[in-house]
């Protein structure tokens, strides 16, 4: 019902919650919220809430990279978070979100996997980042990416004694070299805006998620949505993402 109204507003340069096009909703970041996890973060953007938890275990490396630890990012769209989510195996939206977040971290080489080797070629640390969607009120990707990186930078490696993990005890910090931030730029007609509220998200024609590093370099891009984007509009989209990523990073 609200979607049409949201669209009408955007076409007139306005938004349902009176924000500017380049303005995020208020953001809250809390780390260390789950004591059972090696690292965790709660992120709230407006009413959207996600929790990312990092669990770290001892595993075997992939055969093609024997001297690197393993990073696995997974998302669960729990049915409580939205009437649109159903239980069962992750659908394509959940898979896509996890892979966008994964690439932001992996491609920026944020997690120093070469420092996660216990016995070269045999034993490495496996880092699971699980992102739980608590309330879906728009812009899940930016919230999930923000939660994931905050959980990682605050995570600690479990304590090892004679090759075994000592439950509940922690040692060094998880080696994280960068803090990529993902900003999704949305497009309706000629209007570009960030951080769509849920009503706005359903009228977005296309959107581009861009992961940006501390120095303004870009480490991952994914276009989404059912419409194409004029080639000549791409640069403005990238510029807006770089600018907003800088703002978000200040909150970390």
């Amino acid at each position: 019902m609200m979607e049409r109204y949201a669209l009408e507003l955007i076409e007139h340069g306005k938004r349902v919650d009176k924000r500017k096009f380049d303005q995020f909703r208020d953001i809250e970041i809390k780390t260390g919220v789950i004591s059972k996890a090696e690292g965790s973060a709660y992120v709230r953007i407006g009413k959207t809430q996600v929790i990312a938890g990092v669990k770290i275990g001892v595993g075997t490396p992939f055969s093609d990279s024997p001297n690197n630890g393993v990073l696995i990012v997974n998302t669960e769209f729990t049915p409580m978070a939205s009437p649109e989510f159903e239980s069962g195996p992750p659908g394509e939206n959940a898979v896509e979100l996890a892979r966008i977040v994964d690439r932001g971290i992996r491609e920026s080489k944020s997690l120093e996997t070469e420092k996660l080797v216990i016995v070269p070629g045999e034993k490495v640390w496996t880092v699971f980042v699980d992102i739980h969607i608590i309330d879906h009120q728009g812009n899940l990707i930016d919230a999930a990416a923000l939660a994931a990186i905050n959980a990682l930078i605050t995570a600690k490696l479990p304590k090892l004694e004679e090759g075994k993990v000592v439950a509940g005890e922690h040692g060094d910090k998880l080696p994280v070299a960068h803090k990529p931030v993902t900003v999704t730029v949305c497009k309706v007609g000629d209007n570009l805006f960030v951080d769509p509220a849920i009503e706005e998200e359903s009228v977005v024609e296309s959107k581009v998620s861009i992961a940006v590093m501390e120095d303004g370099k870009i480490c991952a891009i994914q276009k989404q949505g059912a419409s194409g984007i004029a080639f000549n509009d791409l640069e403005a989209i990238v510029d807006l993402a770089i600018k907003k990523a800088g703002d978000l990073r200040k909150l970390m």
């Binding site: 690439r103 992996r106 491609e107 920026s108 080489k109 581009v208 590093m213 303004g216 370099k217 870009i218 480490c219 991952a220 891009i221 994914q222 276009k223 194409g228 984007i229 004029a230 080639f231 000549n232 791409l234 640069e235 990238v238 510029d239 770089i242």
Partner: peptide
């Protein structure tokens, strides 16, 4: 260091797929 996948409508100059990973400056991306 980085790779970008692009699909477009060539006669309309409209991009319909854009994926990138790896590290690039904005100038390199353009």
């Amino acid at each position: 260091e980085s790779d970008v996948g692009v699909a477009m409508m060539p006669q309309k100059d409209i991009v319909t797929l854009l994926q990138m990973d790896g590290i690039l400056t904005k100038e390199e991306l353009v």
